[in-house]
Design a binder for these strands. Structure first.
Lengths: 343, 343
DNA sequence: TTGTAGGCGTTATCAG
DNA sequence: CTGATAACGCCTACAA
């Protein structure tokens, strides 16, 4: 690996001059500048990022901590962040927390040793991000929290408008004539789960519909969670004719449970998910879902982080991205009986 | 950020001693050792990875270059690699090449500046990895190539047994009574695509079945590719009664095309994919597919890389992972007519 | 067994 | 505008 000294010798200038042309840190005479650039090109020289980082006390790396890249919603988020980071000369160090706060903490601690310019994190369950990233903020590194927020988070954040998305979905179900609704929420210590529940409830209130607490089931954000809670919901009397699932994985499990109970979706039970994952297009029936852009989530977070890195010290930004309803075939008009009896 | 000097002062020893206990590079008396460790714990000291890397001319980072994290097969690969890397103290720098060799090259060049201990790469289309990673190998960094191999690759590699997987799938279709088969391959400059085609052909030869070249369609590894090529296949006379798709995304497109042609899967056309993605469980009909473990692919690559980093200088390893057939509902016995006419 | 000092490749400060 | 020179934090001969 060539280094600055060699470039300096080739260009017959001093070490300092090379540094100056590389960083535009001083006006260097054009002919000299060209000589240096020529040498750089000739040997394919690249500044050693370790030496640079050591000296500047900051690298061009961004730590990204997510629960699990294997969860179908997160790859797009990572991709969005990587695209923006890459095109600005930053690289992503990817870490999986498995939704476990102790693993998240381990990553947080070990990442510090690389002096990253900043962090983008989707907090784990029971994350104590606010306290744990204090070291970073004190060191001048930005921390952007996305998708869901830990309690007391007051730093930069990017989230989808979960409340609004859930509201849209629920209102759509109501407009289809459903009056006995149910929802399967995510873990309610996660803000995105509670926000979606709020949206669901607001739509119900708006339609003056009431429902007992047993029609709200809390589950993990996965297929199993959706499956087991749906089984419970389908045994209730009156049986719900429409279910709002807090994400598509839950909806997938719900679909399975509906089928196993000998019922049909959407004829007997309508279903709407959240996230609008690709797999929703190919299920049977295809899944109606609240659409949010994971890519945008990641890209926006990277944008904010870069602005912080460039020196923006303004107040915390809280970006909330819009959602839209993708209508496919998993929700239909309420069964006749329901409509005639209750309306 | 505390540094070694502070630890040395706290433990009342010299800087060198601290380094020795941290690296076990010299026998340090137990009481002194304890004093140092105590100080380390007290302030949460972590060796600065940049300084360490600069000095050692090698970091604990592994560069991972993949086509696109958004492709549903790759997250598992990344996860497998990350798990093994993490538990050995290594971190992953993730890069997306978008299957473009120039972007791959850019990543290759820029990653060098971080002095990664090694590289794990899924080569892009028309990759010239062999030449481009020469610098790395000369610098003593390992490079492991996975999933598909560029031409002339002679270094470490981990791939699935694509030929065998395709053979199993095709033989299964033949055993179901199909005699007019077709396949949609991936881009044939990719080794995994050609290997799968070879397996398909071997099974045909084994059953003494012949088929014209128009029954082999080359497509990109995605839904669109599968859709358009299936449309072509379905217009052939005699129409194929079974299609082996080189991956699940292609199969998904095929499913769509079959449905649009007014045909039923599997009654009119049987279908088998490759990769066994999660989404295959929820399609209608659910997708039979050749199963390969992306996680294992990534984890094995990381294992090999770590052994190289630890000094293994043995001959290149070529690990080939097994495949299995996951049977669901997209393939059925050949239609009666076909069986009676041709058998 | 412990301590000392040089240098890894940069950047930044400060003379000239 | 250009060129020495001193850190940055760590590792490793080598000396004690």
């Amino acid at each position: 690996m060539p280094n600055m000294k060699q470039i300096a010798k080739m260009a017959r200038v001093s070490l300092g001059t090379v540094s100056h042309v590389l960083n535009n840190s001083a006006g260097v005479r054009e002919p000299v500048r060209m000589r240096v650039l020529e040498a750089v090109r000739a040997v394919g020289y690249r500044p050693n990022q370790l030496a640079r980082g050591l000296r500047r006390v900051r690298t061009s790396m961004i730590g990204m901590i997510i629960p699990d890249i294997t969860n179908p919603f997160f790859p797009a988020v990572v991709r969005g962040a990587e695209d923006i980071a890459f095109s600005n000369g930053y690289r992503l160090i990817l870490c999986n927390s498995d939704n476990h706060h102790s693993k998240e903490l381990a990553h947080l601690n070990e990442l510090r040793a690389y002096l990253p310019a900043g962090l983008i994190v989707i907090p784990s369950n029971f994350s104590d991000l606010t306290a744990q990233t204090d070291v970073y903020r004190r060191a001048g590194a930005g921390v952007v929290c996305i998708d869901r927020l830990p309690t007391n988070w007051s730093g930069d954040s990017v989230t989808a408008n979960n409340e609004q998305g859930a509201y849209k979905a629920t209102r759509y179900l109501i407009q289809l004539g459903h009056t006995t609704l149910a929802t399967i929420t995510g873990p309610l210590h996660l803000t995105n789960a509670t926000d979606r529940l709020c949206g669901f409830k607001r739509a119900l209130r708006g339609a003056k519909l009431k429902l007992g607490p047993e029609y709200v089931q809390e589950a993990t954000f996965d297929k199993n969670g959706g499956y087991s809670k749906t089984a419970i919901l389908l045994r209730l009397i009156p049986r719900p004719t429409a279910i709002f699932a807090a994400n598509d994985m839950i909806a997938l499990g719900a679909l399975l449970a509906i089928r196993e109970a000998g019922l049909r979706c959407p004829e007997d039970v309508s279903l709407i998910g959240f996230d609008d994952l690709d797999l929703g297009e190919t299920t049977n029936p295809s899944l109606s879902s609240v659409s949010q852009s994971g890519y945008q989530l990641g890209a926006t977070a990277a944008d904010i982080l870069l602005s912080r890195i460039k020196g923006d010290t303004g107040p915390a930004k809280h970006i909330v991205l819009g959602t839209s309803l993708t209508i496919r075939n998993s929700a239909a008009r309420a069964p006749e009986i329901e409509r005639s009896i209750f309306q």
